[in-house]
Computed example of a mutant assay.
Amino acid sequence: MGFDFLHPLDQELVAYVQTQSSQNLGSKVVLHTQTDFPDLDKVQIAIVGVLENRGASNQMSEIDLTAIRKEFYSLYPGNWQASIADLGDIRSGDELSDTYFALKTVVAALIKKKIIPFIIGGSQDLTFAMYRAYDNLDQMVNLVSIDSKFDLGKENATDMASSYLTRMIIEEPNNLFNYSVLGYQTYFNPQEEIDLMDKLYFEGYRLGEVTANISITEPVFRDADIVSVDLTSIQTSSSGNFITFTPNGFNGKEICSLARYAGISDKVSLFGIFNHNSSKQESVLIAQIIWYFVEGFQYRSNEYPFSAKDNYFKYIVPLEQEELVFYKSDQTERWWIEVPQIIHSHTKTQKNTLLPCSYEDYLGAINQEIPERWWKMQRKSII
């Protein structure tokens, strides 16, 4: 199954967890120890550390995830029924490609068992290995990155962490259908990359746009398979990261809200958080990000994929040359818009597509404004 790549938790950490109160998270999580491996048939979310940062040009110090785990296990759970396991760490291989292979194998095995891997890295190029885990799962992939940059570097760049998306686009098999960036900062991105995002009909949301109305990201997460978080997208005053000083970025409340949206999404099957600088301050924030993701997971409504449309209100909005069809859930009051049936040049996407959207998209359509996400989806789907 590929779980041989996982190394058990350090005995010191296990001993720490055992000292926690029965009410703390530490007593609720099943641990991979020197003597025991969790029964995965009883697990819904699996935490996996990846001790690899060679994909970044400015390599961080040696990765230590102990403080994150201690902080997380000392928290108290919400009113949860979610079963969580900590499967330990994937250590760096002889070559960077060896680590990629190990991560890809572990993630694929967990997803096949319908377990959500929560990956804590290392450098963000590990997102590429996570994406490759879907190669044999017969589906196209939507990736959401919480990042200040697009990571669309040159194909032959030595810094994989700043160019992993280019490899996703170029290398076969090409499973990437949509890529969305939340919180990008224009002065960190060359104009040619901004133009390429538009040309590929990918989605970019500027930092100010998201922080002004964070709820606009909910439909984006609802359509995501993978969520990748670059911790340098969080401002230093919230993260405590003074190694990579970030004056502008998401604050602690905002990044936790985004993590909760990701957890709520019925479709998100993989979450990764990267570029941890191993500081005590940042460990506290990461622990809370994990907490909010699990909190969101607890409130999944299982509306994806659609079951019977009898549970949804249908709204038809006539435009000048066509009509837009919206659906509203009578359970959660969330909205979807129908993308017209298109014959695709590949076999991995469905012909009938329902795209998550917002109530504001519906109101805009009434005023004869075509939703931008709907338009981009149409352009991508045409042969």
Rank of each mutant, 00 (worst) to 15 (best):
M1S: 07
F3A: 09
L6D: 00
L13K: 03
Y16I: 12
T19A: 10
Q20M: 15
S21Y: 04
L25Y: 02
G26P: 11
S27E: 07
V29F: 10
Q34L: 12
T35G: 00
F37C: 00
L40M: 09
K42N: 15
I47K: 12
N53C: 08
S57W: 13
I63Y: 12
D64K: 15
T66A: 07
I68Y: 02
F72P: 00
F72Y: 15
Y73C: 13
G78F: 14
Q81C: 09
L87T: 05
L87P: 00
I90R: 01
F101H: 04
F101C: 01
F101E: 00
A102G: 01
L103H: 04
K104Q: 09
T105W: 05
I111K: 04
K114N: 11
I115H: 04
F118A: 02
F118N: 08
F118L: 09
G121M: 11
Q124H: 15
D125H: 07
Y134N: 09
V141I: 14
L143E: 05
S145N: 13
F150R: 08
A157V: 01
S163P: 01
S163V: 06
T166L: 06
L176D: 03
F177G: 01
V181L: 07
F188M: 13
I194G: 03
I194F: 09
L196C: 00
L200C: 04
E203D: 14
R206H: 14
V210Y: 05
V210K: 03
A212N: 15
N213T: 13
P219C: 08
F221I: 02
S228G: 03
Q235G: 04
S238I: 08
S239Y: 03
T244V: 05
C256M: 12
A259P: 13
R260Q: 14
R260D: 11
A262E: 10
S265K: 08
S269Y: 01
L270N: 10
I273P: 02
E282S: 05
Q288R: 15
Q288D: 14
I289Y: 09
I289F: 09
F293W: 01
V294W: 01
E295H: 09
R300S: 02
S301L: 13
N302L: 14
A308T: 15
N311D: 15
K314I: 01
K314P: 00
V317R: 03
E320D: 14
E322D: 12
K328S: 11
Q331G: 11
R334M: 11
Q341D: 07
H344A: 08
H344S: 12
H346T: 13
T347G: 06
N352R: 10
N352H: 10
L355S: 08
C357R: 09
E360T: 11
D361R: 06
N367D: 11
Q368L: 01
W374C: 03
K376S: 08
